[in-house]
Computed example of a mutant assay.
Amino acid sequence: MKLKLLIVLVLMFPFVVHFSTTSSFACSCIQPGTAVEEMDRSDFVYSGKVLEITDTKAGSNVQSSADLLEIHFEVSTSWKGANETEALVYTERDSASCGFNFKVDEEYLVYGNVQDGKKSVNLCSKTTLLANAKEDLVALGEGQKPTELVDLGEKADGVEHEHSAAEEHPMAMTITIFAFVVLVIIIFSYAIVKKNSQR
Rank of each mutant, 00 (worst) to 15 (best):
E106D: 15
H161Q: 15
Q115M: 13
E106Y: 08
I175Y: 10
P170D: 07
G99K: 03
S120W: 07
V16G: 13
F19K: 14
Q63M: 12
N83T: 15
M12T: 12
R41N: 11
A87Y: 09
T127C: 02
Q115D: 12
V50K: 04
I186T: 07
H163C: 05
S95G: 13
P14E: 06
I53Q: 07
A165V: 06
Y90A: 06
E84V: 02
M1L: 13
S28M: 15
K155W: 08
V150E: 08
L109A: 03
I187M: 15
K49D: 07
E107A: 11
V16R: 01
F13M: 08
S23A: 14
L137V: 06
V181N: 09
N61F: 12
A165Q: 12
S189C: 11
N113S: 08
S60F: 11
T54Y: 01
K80N: 03
T91N: 01
D43L: 01
S24Y: 03
I7G: 01
Y90L: 11
R199G: 12
R199A: 06
E52R: 10
H18M: 15
G59D: 10
H72Y: 02
P32F: 04
S189G: 12
C124D: 01
A172Q: 02
H18Q: 15
A166P: 13
E106R: 11
K145G: 10
V121R: 03
G112F: 06
K145Q: 13
K194Q: 07
K103N: 02
V89T: 07
L183P: 01
K194D: 05
I71V: 15
T147E: 13
C124R: 00
A156I: 14
P146A: 04
A35I: 05
F25W: 09
W79T: 02
M1W: 09
L6A: 11
S28V: 11
E92D: 09
F19L: 15
L140G: 09
D67R: 07
E148G: 12
L69K: 06
L5P: 09
S164A: 09
K145A: 15
D43F: 05
F178N: 10
I192E: 09
Y108F: 00
H72C: 05
A191T: 11
K145W: 08
I177M: 14
V45W: 04
L69T: 03
T127P: 02
S164Q: 08
L123H: 01
S120H: 13
V121N: 08
I186F: 02
K49E: 11
K49Y: 03
E106I: 04
G81A: 03
T54C: 09
T127S: 00
G48T: 02
A82Y: 00
F102Q: 04
T85S: 10
V17H: 04
S189M: 12
V138Q: 15
E135G: 03
G48N: 05
Y46D: 02
G141M: 02
E167Y: 08
G153C: 01
K2F: 14
N196E: 13
I192N: 02
V104I: 09
S47W: 07
S42R: 05
S189F: 08
Y46M: 04
